[in-house]
Design a protein around this nucleic acid. Sequence first.
DNA 1: CCATCCACGTTTTTT
DNA 2: ACGTGGATGG
Length: 737
Amino acid sequence: MSIYDTLNHEQQTAVFHTEGPVLILAGAGSGKTRVLTHRIAYLIEEKGVNPWNIMAITFTNKAAGEMRERVDKIVGFGSESIWVSTFHSSCVRMLRRFIDRLGYDTNFTIYDTDDQKTLMKDICKRLDIDTKVYKERAILAAISSAKDELISPEEYEINVMSDFSKRKIALAYKEYQKELKKNNALDFDDLIVKTVELFRACPDVLEYFQDRFQYIMVDEYQDTNTAQFKFVSLLADKYRNLCVVGDDDQSIYKFRGANIGNILGFEKVFPDAKVVRLEQNYRSTQNILNAANQVIQNNMERKRKSLWTENAEGEKLHFRQFMNAHEEAEYIVGDISKKVREHDGEYRDFAILYRTNAQSRLFEEKFLMANIPYKLVGGVNFYARKEIKDLLAYLKTVDNARDDLAVRRIINVPKRGIGATTLGRVQDYAAERGMSFYDALREADQIPSLGRAASKVEPFVTFIQTLRSKLEYLSPSELLKDIIENTGYVEELRAEGTEEAEARIENIDELITKVVTYEEENEEPTLSGFLEEVALVADIDSVDGDDNQVLLMTLHSAKGLEFPYVYLAGMEDGIFPSYMTITADDPTEIEEERRLCYVGITRAMKDLTLTCAQQRMIRGETQYNKVSRFIKEIPRDLVELGRNFEEKKLKEIPLPTSYRQMKEAFKQPAFVPKQFEVKKASGLDYGVGDTVKHMKFGVGVVTAITEGGRDYEVTVNFDKAGIKKMFASFAKLKKVQ
DNA sequence: CCATCCACGTTTTTT
DNA sequence: ACGTGGATGG
């Protein structure tokens, strides 16, 4: 009995076919990750392939982490030398080694969307581009899609000669790349583009990596763009052992440049490709799967494929329509609460999925009121917060003095009396001499136009120089603490005394924790390493099944995940499918929305609820929406409609004050509900030695109560379940007389 | 040079 | 409804 016996026939075919190009068309829930991990094991154990020669590429760090974990479990020896990583981090790793061949420094900085925007704004000003006519975002989007297609600024310029407004963009693109290089920075797209460029410019480097990665596997292949395709095909060109896994029905990133042609045309590029179809679904019930199949069938452009399952028929899908979005949210939150009370599942078994991030707000509000732990994925990125960006800018400045953006961000934070005028003069001086902004600052006393302002600059320069000299013997976390102390950043916030400032301090504490965690997890922690990790995290990466919380996220973020209970909220024409795609000329856009719907439905394992509202506030305006066309594509007999929603409102809750106030009141990390505070103030109604009752574990005796930061941690010796530690506010323990 | 106020646009999705 | 960023006045 080998580990491969547990695979079905098609899965085995995919695992055993190790040589040459392979295309695995894997439907939702068909066990593709299992196939990939088993394939890696098979390569090593049966084919004698050196783990060192294997590479697996995913899109998110979370997916990479999960695969790594599973590979570690299944491969006995040498699994740590397999490269399991995302496109972006693979490229960074390669570039850190060789990018000097392209005239960049190997300690380059990675710009996020915020940085890009700041830089573009600057460029527009310089090029005299009116940002009211050409918005930075639009220009950046154009540049990004050019990069996705590997179109250089020069090529772009030639292509758009005839179009006036595009000529402007071409100009901006050129300037933008020039600035990036000057700042020794790369944006997200550059990470891939520059790697391809490197491969093309330096055959020896390409061959080095080709020999290194003789077996390459790519997950979520339907979401690769042209640049990523080129990256992969160049790498695989020598040994041709390329195995790609994907599902064209789950291609949902066209807006980000994903080229569905990569998967649809794989057999054209590799005529000798072995094609394997995984069509047995192990995740969902018949009903859920049937609904998904029926919906996706309305798309014209797709590979033939139909999912089936041996699972039970299961419950029917539920559909509910409400008067407004409040009732919708209340119903869903109430339903989850009820199901958990009735032991149908734990909080972690539930997920609410929606089309736009803005829809999350109401759910948050209701979860806070109902005191249910939840986790919001997405929204405002932790690393996009002001205080975090400020401190990171300090670290970046120390790490790479050529990053003008970072230097300019912090030169007057905290206030050093250096204003726009001074900045402009330094900038001019730097531009004249072709030096970096920071280098110009270092010789501030030699800039005649500065006058007295030069004396204000000096302490800043000295400070940075001191930090840099400490770089050798201070760890990143010590450096960060040094910065916080010397700038008085936290002190200043503390002096403010507002709740908002408190929240910022908490965020800073969290940043420190993250640096320390980074140092613990890496053998050779470096400042550059930390900054790089920070630049490449996605929201979804922080989702951890260990926390018992309801998950809230967009449909896009949910790809690749599964939950016993799924709620698809906001099933309305105009929301989902979005207004943009309904009104678009291009009919394929609606197909992409439908694929998104397919992704949503197939996340559910046993229970799927679809909801919509008749009216909904959007940007302060009330909208009236029809039921989503996708709902109508689901056969009626698969759906249970339910009586009109009559359940009592979540009891005795004072009417919601404004959302802002709510947030203020509960401003802990989002998932820590209010009750902590309440409980602490009022104390517990049981103590050590008392007998208590728990919903799930039954009766037990309290052996200890410790005071945690925000809650009491109670240790109980249960008659049946043994000793458990739990937080008082979640455990809902009742004293038994 | 800095703080405050108002107008505007933003939202479809993100590595 | 909300936050950002520009304009304005101190």
